[in-house]
Amino acid sequence: MNLTLFFQQFLNGLSIGSVYAIFALGYTLVFSILGIINFAHGAIFTLGAYFTYALMGGAFGLNGLLANASLPVQLPFALALILGSTLAGLIGVVIERIAFRPLRRRGADPLLTVVSSLGVAVVIVNLIQYLVGAEIYTFPASTYGNLPAAINFGTAAQPIPVRSVQVVIFGVSVVILTLLTYGINATKYGKAMRAVAEDATTASLLGINVDRFIVLTFFVSSFLGGLAGTLVGSSVSIAGPYFGIVFGLKGLAVIVLGGLGSIPGAVLGGLVIGLVEAFVPSDYSAYKDAVAFGLLFIMLLVRPQGLLGRSALQKV
């Protein structure tokens, strides 16, 4: 592998890895507060992409209930991205109300909550299929305005072209990660969120409205999920209602690799998996999807608490 190809793959890996990171952060936030994995997160990812597509004025295909429908607005990509992710966040809040809160109130077995979130995922995915069909939707070519198709990171003599979409994705991800890190570490809300994650009962004794912060967490988590969906969808295409499910499973690999409930771990895990996938030789690219899961499996056997996770103490 020559140096040009190496840099190219490295930058591609960073770009997809950063999307994995923001997507996996959504899982991590919910896990750190409730100790459960929200399996509907992959469906939210899909939903976010569809919302942004619709807000940009994209028309839907022939097969669903909403055949050929399109919104009367045509928002620019940046605005549609934020609005679409916000809508995904609001759906997350609704999911918390319907599928998580009743079980939490009763103190139900965490496995039951996992199952109910799986049920939500089934509903969302099939609702999308029912409404807009199973076609592949591609964002309009003008999504990213007047950016050139590729940006050269090398010299004129030795070009290292990288698709500008990838650069935009990386940029957006870095901005979001910075904002989130600041929000969690330096603001009052972030502090309260961490307190709830540490111990919900004590936090509520200290005057923190725990339910409100759980709702906030779900909103932020689903916002990140929807955002990641849009970024991936705009760089490749929206490959039908099921496109978030595989991504959702890969997100699991990311958080376990980094350490469940660890925010830096999710970022690190995302980058590691993104980079490893980018360097899978092209002859074996069909096995690319297995790489993340193979890595996950090995990690679980060698170091179940993940790269940056704390090993849980067993209480009697």
């Binding site: 109910s116 939500v120 969302i124 995915v125 099939n126």
Partner: peptide, 9 residues
Amino acid sequence: LIIFGLLIV
């Protein structure tokens, strides 16, 4: 399948 999912929840 939507009904299926609702039944699970």
